[in-house]
């Protein structure tokens, strides 16, 4: 719930529709084509809104305009293309976006936003990937144990962990970790970015939500799978419980998990905004929050645009991945 930008329910539903509609190989191609078209429309829409907002919002590269002469101002306006008519600016803006030009910062010596982002993507990406891997792996294990020992004490405990993990905001966890692990006990560094041990606390804080979500999802999915007719068939063959769980249960329960990976990864990106701020990690999120306070709109817009692209492409990749992994979708429909 907390960090999802796309509701998990929405995407799951889309994928479920996808899985049950009659799809042949051609249909899969059409589905992917359709999703790419939607992606382009969406990006175009976001870009247009951003452009309009840029024109509406206060602030210009002439932060210290009164100190400059008329001629100097003219030079800067020319440099930013602000003398062109608005439609021309719009086309230039879209053209720039396609080439990865996200505009120029008002502050930071007027550096291009794309440069600033590429400088800062490393820590953000590292945190995100570490958290996604740890979160999903731990979550899957927790969910499996929970489903297999359904209604037992383990199930009870991991359900509590899952409810806490999905409910309590990550910044609260971050505060707890920072205060106890770093300040009180001094086990790990409090903040900043100076090597792997600096990434441990932010990674854990970020990983808790995906872990809890995966655990809950995996638990329901696995319980559902274990109630399927084909599990009874497998039991009727005389297979042992462990063989049934490993050969027939886990694979079928894991496939739908792919559908929530997209929203989860997107959620992690959002999470980095807050977590990087708390742990002073020099990533994109921290830059974004700083820019919000200093009203550096090109960075805010550029980062937003960048987020939009990352989100949408990630969702697309996961959609396609799902289609490739599930044999029912891979070759034809459910009959």
């Amino acid at each position: 719930m907390a960090y999802t930008l796309f509701s998990i329910g929405d995407y799951y539903q889309i994928m479920a529709n996808f899985a049950t509609t009659n799809l042949g190989g051609a249909h899969v191609a059409r589905f992917i084509g359709q999703r790419i078209i939607y992606m382009i429309i969406t990006l175009f829409l976001i870009a247009t809104i951003s452009f309009v907002l840029m024109k509406l919002l206060p602030g210009s590269p002439l932060a210290n305009a009164d100190k400059l002469t008329e001629a100097q101002q003219e030079v800067i306006f020319e440099k930013y293309g602000l003398n062109d008519p608005i439609p021309v600016q719009y086309v230039n803006y879209l053209g720039g976006l396609v080439q990865g030009d996200l505009g120029i910062s008002f502050k930071y010596d007027n550096r291009p936003v794309s440069d600033i982002l590429s400088d800062r993507i490393g820590p953000s990406a590292q945190l995100g990937i570490q958290a996604l891997i740890i979160g999903t792996v731990a979550g899957i294990l927790l969910g499996l144990v929970s489903a297999i020992y359904h209604n037992g004490i383990t199930d009870y405990l991991s359900t509590i962990i899952a409810v806490l993990g999905t409910s309590i905001p990550s910044f609260v966890f971050a505060g707890l970790l920072q205060f106890f692990v770093a300040v009180k006990w001094g086990i790990l560094p409090v903040a900043t970015w100076n090597g792997f041990e600096y990434s441990i606390l932010p990674t854990i804080a970020l990983a808790i939500f995906p872990m809890a979500t995966c655990a809950r999802f995996m638990r329901t999915e696995m319980i559902e799978v274990l109630n399927e007719d084909y599990i009874t068939t497998a039991r009727a063959k005389g297979l042992a419980g462990s063989a049934i769980i490993f050969k027939h249960g886990i694979r079928n329960a894991l496939i739908p998990l792919i559908t929530i990976l997209g929203p989860l990864a997107v959620g992690l990106l959002t999470g980095t905004l807050v977590i990087e701020q708390i742990f002073s990690v020099p990533g994109i999120g921290e830059q974004f929050v700083t820019s919000v306070t200093s009203n550096d709109f090109p960075i805010i817009m550029g980062t937003t645009m960048f987020f939009a692209v990352v989100f949408i492409v990630m969702i697309l990749i996961i959609d396609i991945l799902y289609g490739l992994i599930d044999p029912r979708i891979r070759l034809s429909g459910k009959d």
């Binding site: 007719d229 084909y230 068939t233 497998a234 009727a236 063959k237 005389g238 297979l239 599930d326 009959d335």
Partner: peptide
Amino acid sequence: RGKEMAMIFQDPMTSLNPT
């Protein structure tokens, strides 16, 4: 089960593992 006694189920659509 499966050796001495075996069973055929009602719905062949759901009684086989889809994956």
